[in-house]
Design a protein around this nucleic acid. Structure first.
Lengths: 334, 334
DNA sequence: CTTATTTACGAAACCGTTTTCGTGGTAAAG
DNA sequence: CTTTACCACGAAAACGGTTTCGTAAATAAG
């Protein structure tokens, strides 16, 4: 079908090996021959067959990005950063969505055994009951970098934000603004970053002599239908909190939904702060105070780390990059 | 390195061809032999080498999604839909971002000549001065489906929403609510969908006997830094419009930014409606009336169409799927 | 019992590169 | 005039499957 090295070789009265080397600019080939080959190849519009060379060279030029969803501003910005780095290095990005389903994550990771990708960037699902599939992935020679949602128990490169400290600061911020009774909207499952954020929240409670019983942690899920009643109940209870820390973007916006529904005024009756990367946080009603994660930078850092493991074949498994978030105070905590 | 068909064949005293056929469940192989092969392969944890089979079978199992950006709720939802269909069919999704740069789009599309992907889903960049690269892509045997941002002049499958009619309805909605002086925030470049939306807007003007000069079309760009001054100027001019139609999500939210900045009240002084797929449109200040595009469904439809061209090798180039948007009236046009 | 047909498998070509290993020829070194 | 070094290239073996074609044995048909 297409024009192959073989055809070029035949037409030019050269051996295929010669043509191959010429195209790869090998020192073994004279400048004149290279020129002949280059020009003829260009004239025929020669495109090397990816699969032939991948087969031989045992690399695909693809990297995988595995994440729970893409309709979250954090993840979409992270993809943006990853794609930028990948494109600049001539790599291609494959995107896989787990939708918080361990089963999907397993089968996706399982697929990677066939060499379709040379490396993996990953934000794990929340309910990582078993992570054997990740152990197996890490055990292979394929570089693996976790970003944001890391899997503890796997010795692997990580790119995260300062979850504990950010959450502590956000909580302190609520307290400083006058909130007396707090609540932390956590996420069911067992995510390291969520646990850290939660601990940061609790640290702030202790720092201010607040009781952990009266300032609870509420475990939300990943589906709005579950969370709205949960948050509704929290805000309708007799001990209504007047300060809420959202561990992820979704629960913060869901809190807004409930507050609007219950006619609770933000920030007068309830202050809200949330981890989020929404560009339009400032346009919400009222504008939302956010712990803004460096999503784009985290994506870039993760990808860069991956390529260090990939191209310099360095062992980056002990690398841990922490990029701080910034608290952007807005109306919701005024 | 890994376990190959060759090894299985040797260990089982079979020919490689026999093992290959057994694994592919060929009728040529007896049930007993198949069983032997299956079990042994499973025991050794055999994984077929993707590149060997891709080389021979001339298909990669990958599809490409080429789009301007991912940090837009429309596109991220579309990816979601695409990924769902692809995953269910055992295909893999490669994501390419053009960032509205024709040059990037060209080099991306150019890459597809090597067979890395079997088909392409695409939302073109706005400034498609020349689209030779798309002509060339469409000219090859590789299925191509445009979604949302189609490229006219290329005979190819399309999945779009009812842009003209939606824009007309949105404009009529503004007029019905009492707006007297309108403006349409368009997008520079030459996108078919933008032109259609603009024509829908102008149709509504004519339907209501409104003058096109006094109800202008303003051409925005893709960068906020350009648009804010533009919108600011529009809203500060002596003939300030009291009804704005945003052709894409970005310009609608940017209008919000400017209105907040200028202390213009929405909807009292300015009504705003925009094409958008934001889940949190209802939480904006004030909640934003949207023409909500069926992003997820469009992604699914586009992918499904692509697979029809891919697996049934049907010629889908004349297919055009139109999935209507819905106007969700909220506070911004009250 | 002969002839056609089916069944189950093997040998080998092939997909398009890359890479190793030679080799004849020329130039430099001894 | 040998020996040693390149130089520039070719032959052929990979890489790991898939596919075509051939064939021995078993079965069915005549």
């Amino acid at each position: 079908m297409g024009v192959t090295i073989k055809k070029i070789a035949a037409d030019l009265n050269l051996a295929v090996s010669t043509v191959s080397k010429a195209l790869r600019d090998s020192y073994e080939i004279s400048p004149e021959t290279k020129m002949r080959v280059f020009e003829y190849a260009a004239r025929l519009n020669y495109v090397p067959n990816l699969y032939a060379s991948s087969l031989k060279r045992r690399r695909s030029g693809n990297i995988a990005v595995v994440l729970p969803e893409v309709a979250d501003s954090f993840f979409s910005s992270a993809i943006d950063g990853i794609e930028e780095v990948a494109q600049s290095r001539g790599y291609h990005v494959m995107v896989y969505l787990t939708h918080e389903d361990v089963g999907r994550e397993q089968s996706i990771v399982h697929e990677f055994r066939n060499g379709r990708v040379d490396g993996v960037l990953m934000s794990v699902v929340a309910n990582e009951a078993t992570y054997d599939h990740l152990v197996e992935l890490g055990g292979r020679d394929m570089p693996l970098v976790f970003f944001d949602r890391v899997c503890e128990g796997i010795h692997s490169a990580q790119v995260v934000t300062d979850d504990f400290e950010s959450a502590r600061k956000a909580t302190q911020h609520l307290i400083d603004r006058g909130s007396k009774r707090l609540a932390f909207l956590s996420l069911a499952g067992d995510l390291a970053i969520i646990r850290l954020r939660q601990e940061g929240y609790q640290q702030a409670l202790r720092d201010n002599g607040l009781d952990e019983q009266k300032n609870p942690v509420v475990y939300c899920t990943h589906t709005e239908a579950d969370n709205l009643p949960l948050i509704r109940k929290l805000l309708q209870g007799e001990h209504r909190p007047d300060g809420i820390v959202g561990s992820v973007e979704k629960v913060a916006t869901q809190t807004y939904t409930v507050c609007h529904e219950l006619n609770l005024s933000i920030p007068t009756q309830v202050r809200v702060v949330g981890f989020s990367h929404l560009q339009i946080a400032g346009l919400l009603n009222p504008s939302l105070t956010t712990i803004t994660q460096p999503a784009f930078e985290m994506g870039k850092a993760a990808a860069t780390l991956l390529f260090r493991g990939l191209e310099e074949k360095a062992d980056v498994r002990s690398e841990k990059i922490i990029i701080p978030s910034v608290l952007v105070a807005r109306q919701s905590t005024a």
